[in-house]
């Protein structure tokens, strides 16, 4: 009896020790980045401590008052919000169609959408760069280095994920509700906006937030398909290392700013992030 009880207590201690250690391991790199962002260049090369004794605010005010960096930040905001809106609306239409009509070949189309998400972006850099600079052009205007170009492009990975996520939510709304509204004389359009959208609102919000985070986080395409006007904060972060390689404090500050939106939304989406990342295959 006694040994069994001891074993149980040891089990609990082990469990907590494991999870406290894991939490520290998870938080440490991000915390360290914050610590670095609080130090001046001279303080950095003292013996490392994890304590924040003073805050070197210039690391933040420096980039934030730089017009170039301000533009990067605004671009990121426009592109992420624009893409998230576009993706949510398109996915709403698409999944409503997929779930309410029996369109011939729809299953294959549904499946085809996800193959877009699987494609390695590195393999698409070159063709997209060529298409954006040479092929998609009207006179002198090309999609290269425009915000709309990136907004459209991010649909490649956000739209499939949104469609897969929303499909499950749409299928969960009974058709009888539509039909009842239609009997009352509502048009298809009214049903979609007045009945379906309110019912699917939580799902739409999750889709919107996750798309926003993914679009905000993207680096590779933003780095290759823009040059001056449409650069985003993630490319700005990468530029820090190459251009002013030694100013680690400012780089850490920019990195901290770049993960802020994700941190803010984390509380709302943490229950759904796994669902989102597995394309709705795993629901909690």
């Amino acid at each position: 009896m006694k040994t069994a009880r001891w074993r149980k207590i040891l089990g609990w201690i082990g469990l907590y020790a494991l999870w406290i250690a894991l939490t520290l391991f998870t938080v440490l790199p991000i915390y360290w980045m914050f610590v670095v962002s609080s130090r001046s260049r001279v303080q950095l090369f003292d013996a490392p401590t994890l304590l924040i004794r003073s805050f070197y605010i210039q690391n933040y005010t420096g980039p934030l008052s730089d017009p170039v960096f301000q533009r990067y930040l605004l671009n990121s905001l426009y592109i992420a919000v624009g893409n998230a809106l576009l993706v949510t609306v398109l996915a709403l239409f698409a999944t409503y169609a997929l779930s309410r009509w029996r369109l011939p070949g729809a299953d294959n189309i549904f499946f085809w959408t996800i193959t877009n998400r699987m494609a390695p972006p590195a393999a698409f850099l070159l063709p997209l760069f060529l298409l954006y600079t040479q092929v998609f052009r009207i006179g002198n205007w090309t999609l290269f280095d425009t915000q709309i170009g990136l907004i459209l492009l991010y649909c490649v990975f956000n739209l499939p994920f949104a469609i897969w996520l929303m499909k499950g939510i749409m299928d969960g709304i009974p058709v009888e509700i539509d039909e009842a509204a239609m009997v009352d004389g509502a048009s298809q359009w009214t049903v979609l906006w007045r009945v379906i959208v309110p019912l699917a609102a939580p799902g739409l919000a999750i889709t919107f937030i996750l798309s926003l985070i993914f679009a905000w986080n993207e680096y590779l395409f933003a780095a290759t398909l823009t040059s001056v006007n449409a650069r985003t904060i993630t490319t700005g972060l990468a530029e820090f290392v190459t251009v002013t390689g030694t100013n680690w404090g400012q780089m850490a500050a920019v990195a901290t700013i770049s993960i802020l939106p994700a941190l803010i939304f984390l509380v709302f989406v943490q229950r759904y992030i796994v669902t989102g990342l597995t394309f709705g295959a795993v629901k909690e």
């Binding site: 938080v27 991000i30 360290w32 986080n217 972060l237 770049s258 984390l266 509380v267 943490q270």
Partner: peptide, 21 residues
Amino acid sequence: TIYVLPLVVAPIAVGATWRLM
């Protein structure tokens, strides 16, 4: 909740944090 944190951090920022480490 804490454990999910790395999933939402931008990959480029993940690289930056580990480089600082």
